[in-house]
Simulated assay, not measured.
Amino acid sequence: MSRLIERLLIPTDASDGALSGARHGIALASRTGADVHVLSVVEVGHGPSEYDDDLLSSLEAQADEAVDAVAELARAHDEKLEVTTAVRRGVPFQSIREYANRREIDVIAMGTKGRTGIDRILLGSVTENVLRTARTPVLAVPPNADAPALEDVAFERFLLPTDGSDGAEIAAEWGIALADRLGSTVHALSALDPSPFSALGEEDEVPEALEHRGEAAVASVRERASEVGVDATGSIESGSPTDVVLASAADRDVDLIVMGTHGRTGVGQWFLGSVTENVVRQADVPVFCVPVSAESP
């Protein structure tokens, strides 16, 4: 049987934020049978380097230590894991994206916060740039989502926001496939945001149309989950999409939010790339972000 995830990439700079991402990435790789790639990027621009050779050598030595630490953590957790390490020079998010493309990476797991200052290798903004440009899903892990030990990393309860768009549909496919593999439960969520219609003077009719669309989107996710034996519930809630997703995640004590990076556009929009970015910035749990260009799992 083919593996759900064959190759998982963990970018690191040895910061606490990056290590939080690494722990979740290792746990996910171990439980899905994926090979682990660990990458550290020494940041240099397109032009002449701002660093002299001695400083670059020192930064590369730190990067080597960073990838070795994650590799040792992975092997100590699961001796069956195949681990590959690499250090690159370049613009961090571009180097991460290029490595992922060349190595046919299936999932990128990274922290949302990294180092700051002159010795930075990985920044929070790097994660956002990877989210905007990656062709594969990105597991974005906030620092406060860290677990005391790898064994404590949980993937038991998933939240799947949906609006029925292509972006939400591919995200739901990934969420259900992961839940099936990991023995997780899922909760499908549709947010009703009537604010775009307030200027149209159709406060009564438009929310009803939104509700019907939300019901259909949630029902679709639940039906697909049921087909593969995944326990799924669903709800429709009113309010700002970002606020609704964050509140539902907290109320339901979920371990993972799975959502697309792009959804509906136009006057009926509720689920946009900006919503995903806002959720990633504010969530207390990891967010598994799926681009519409991602292949089905």
Rank of each mutant, 00 (worst) to 15 (best):
A149V: 10
A154Q: 10
F155C: 01
L159K: 05
L160T: 02
T162L: 04
D163G: 08
D163N: 10
G164C: 07
G164Q: 06
S165P: 09
S165H: 10
G167T: 14
G167N: 12
A168N: 05
E169T: 15
E169Y: 04
I170E: 14
G183A: 01
S184L: 09
T185C: 00
V186M: 04
A191I: 06
S195E: 11
P196F: 05
F197T: 09
L200W: 14
L200G: 08
L200F: 14
G201T: 07
E202S: 10
E205Q: 12
R213A: 14
E215K: 11
E215F: 04
A216E: 13
A217T: 06
A217H: 11
A217W: 06
V218I: 13
V221H: 10
E227Y: 05
E227I: 03
D231V: 05
A232T: 06
G234P: 01
G234K: 03
G239E: 00
D243I: 00
L246T: 01
S248E: 11
S248Y: 03
A249N: 01
D253T: 02
V254P: 00
V254E: 00
D255I: 02
D255F: 10
I257T: 09
I257S: 03
M259N: 09
R264S: 13
R264Q: 14
G268R: 12
Q269T: 13
W270G: 09
W270R: 11
L272Y: 11
S274N: 09
S274E: 12
V275L: 13
T276A: 15
E277Y: 13
E277T: 15
N278T: 14
V279H: 12
V280K: 02
Q282S: 15
Q282G: 11
A283Y: 05
V285N: 00
F288L: 15
